[in-house]
């Protein structure tokens, strides 16, 4: 039996053929190594992220997340919910808290859930996978399992917005969270501790609707990584990863820059450091190859 077991909410982008399928795959690999069993919430739905609000108002949005929690409580009894996507985690945790604070809203959500034959108890903790790594397992134990230290790689830890605010990791500051740098260090890589854009917004969903405004911010995020002499950027957030990696060509065209810096997930770093192959770490999912990680993986 696995040492730890959680109810897993992967989210829309972490599905086969979706934009963070590389996060999904590397999380699977990482969890094998860390002896974590993830039990997917059966028939989970989209949380509507932070952009559904224009058409989906408060109660419909809270109800979407309530359905996922109710399904988890019914099928994955007594298991904490773990999300790997920042927006999924935020929406789910926010819904759980709002429905705890507001009894009448809780009753209303349950009235709507009854239409789908479900009932929400709302006593399940909602965690981000980063909390599992940092709090449940702890960096000492992570360090102890490293087989191939990521020596010689300088990494800018880009925490982003929603993994960090408004909830974040207990004991960390919103302005300068250190856990990603500490994780990078415990894997044997070199963390850029003065990476000043670590919690800068990438535009989120506005990268689609307001590309000019968002790409100006992404440019700053990448520029600061170069200024800190980083070989690559690492992040826990699927939207941060996509926004910062895939628009580098467009940014180069727009601003005359020559960016070509890999953007990877913490789960890929752990997978490689634990001795897994480039393919298990989903490094083939990069648009900009993380050459230095590939080299260590193939050693």
């Amino acid at each position: 039996m696995a040492k730890r077991e959680y109810s897993y909410y992967p989210g829309c982008s972490s599905q086969k053929g979706a934009s963070s399928s590389n996060l999904m795959k590397s999380v699977d690999t990482m969890c094998e190594e860390l002896d974590i069993q993830l039990n997917e919430i059966p028939d989970w739905n989209c949380c509507s992220a932070s952009i559904g609000y224009a058409s989906g108002s408060e109660l419909p949005r809270l109800t979407l997340s309530a359905r996922n929690i109710a399904l988890s409580e019914e099928h994955n009894k007594n298991q904490e919910i773990v999300a790997t996507c920042a927006a999924c985690w935020l929406a789910t945790k926010e819904a759980a808290e709002r429905l705890k604070e507001d009894e009448s809203m809780f009753a209303e959500a349950n009235q709507a859930l009854a239409e789908a034959g479900l009932k929400l108890q709302n006593n399940t903790p909602i965690k981000h996978m980063a909390e599992v790594i940092i709090e449940d397992i702890g960096l000492e134990q992570i360090r102890a399992g490293v087989k191939k230290p990521l020596e010689g790689i300088k990494i800018a830890g880009y925490v982003g917005c929603q993994t960090n605010r408004p909830f974040g990791i207990a004991g960390e500051s919103f302005e300068n969270p250190m856990y990603l740098d500490n994780l990078v260090g415990s894997l044997g890589a070199d963390a850029c501790t003065t990476y000043e854009k670590k919690v800068q917004c990438c535009g989120g969903a506005l990268a689609f609707s307001e590309p000019e405004k968002s790409q100006e911010m992404i440019k700053g995020i990448i520029e600061a990584a170069y200024d800190n002499e980083a070989d690559m950027i690492a992040t826990p957030c699927p939207l941060c990863q996509a926004n910062v990696e895939i628009y580098q060509d467009q940014i180069n065209e727009r601003f005359g820059t020559k960016f070509n810096i890999p953007v990877v997930y913490y789960s890929q770093l752990i997978s490689v450091a634990y001795g897994r192959s480039a393919s298990d770490a989903a490094l083939d999912g990069q648009l900009i190859a993380a050459k230095k990680l590939e080299d260590i993986a193939s050693k």
Binding site: S57, L59, T63, E108, Q111, E115, A116
Partner: peptide, 10 residues
């Protein structure tokens, strides 16, 4: 149906 209900309630 669930979302429609939630919208009606709201």
């Amino acid at each position: 149906k669930m979302i429609q209900k939630a919208q009606e309630i709201e």
